[in-house]
């Protein structure tokens, strides 16, 4: 039961993007389509789970003073693994996500969970927390990507719902990311308060 709350808090109560406003750079940068958002979300989930796992295992050995650099090295290692795997097996996604794959290293969400949760909790809780937070992040990115893709080009996951001429181009471009996320948060605020 405790693990379930641990897992599910990442989706709504402490959703990293909608509530905590962490990791917004990739959330805005890569969500021009739902599938890109999902890809980025899953890549971050992998890094988050593995980093949380390793950090909770080595937390006893790391001196207090050098813990942040050590966490960053752990995170950077898994980011490099993701980067190379994606380049080999999903080159199209790798092209689309571009600069934001190496930038998972500086995603405040990953470092934030390592510092705030994994360095204080046991292995199982840390892995569960990483998975919940990561999937909540992936869900938020997929939602934002879906909204932008739908309004911008009339598609959802690449399926055409209405002709592209009727779409609002601005949603696919940079300003649409800010405006789309702003209104998405406003709608969620309204729903959770009501």
């Amino acid at each position: 039961m405790k693990q379930w709350t641990n897992f599910s808090k990442g989706f709504f109560k402490e959703n990293p993007v909608f509530i905590l406003l962490l990791g917004l750079c990739p959330a805005l940068g890569v969500t021009s389509s739902a599938i890109n958002g999902l890809g980025m979300g899953l890549a971050t989930t992998f890094v988050l789970v593995m980093a949380n796992m390793v950090v909770s295992l080595i937390k006893g050995f790391i001196p207090e003073k050098v813990r942040i650099p050590s966490f960053i090295v752990v995170i950077a290692t898994f980011v490099t693994i993701v980067e190379m795997t994606m380049q080999a097996y999903a080159p199209a996604l790798f092209e689309a996500l571009g600069l934001f794959i190496p930038l998972i290293v500086v995603n405040c969400l990953v470092l934030g969970r390592a510092e705030a949760f994994a360095s204080k909790n046991n292995l199982v809780s840390s892995v569960v927390d990483g998975a919940g937070m990561g999937l909540g992040f992936a869900m938020a990115l997929t939602m934002l990507g879906g909204v932008r893709e739908l309004f911008g080009s009339g598609q959802l996951f690449g399926f055409v719902l209405f002709p592209e001429e009727y779409g609002m181009l601005v949603f696919v471009l940079a300003p649409g990311a800010f405006i789309g996320l702003g209104y998405l948060i406003a709608v969620l605020n309204r729903l959770t308060k009501a």
Binding site: L21, V170, A174, I179, G182, A186
Partner: peptide
């Protein structure tokens, strides 16, 4: 408006700023 306070309105403003830079 209540629901827009804080982060949402800031993001929309950033969006309009981005629109200007476009």
């Amino acid at each position: 408006p209540e629901g827009m306070q804080g982060a949402p309105v800031a993001l929309v403003v950033a969006g309009i700023l981005a629109l200007a830079f476009m």
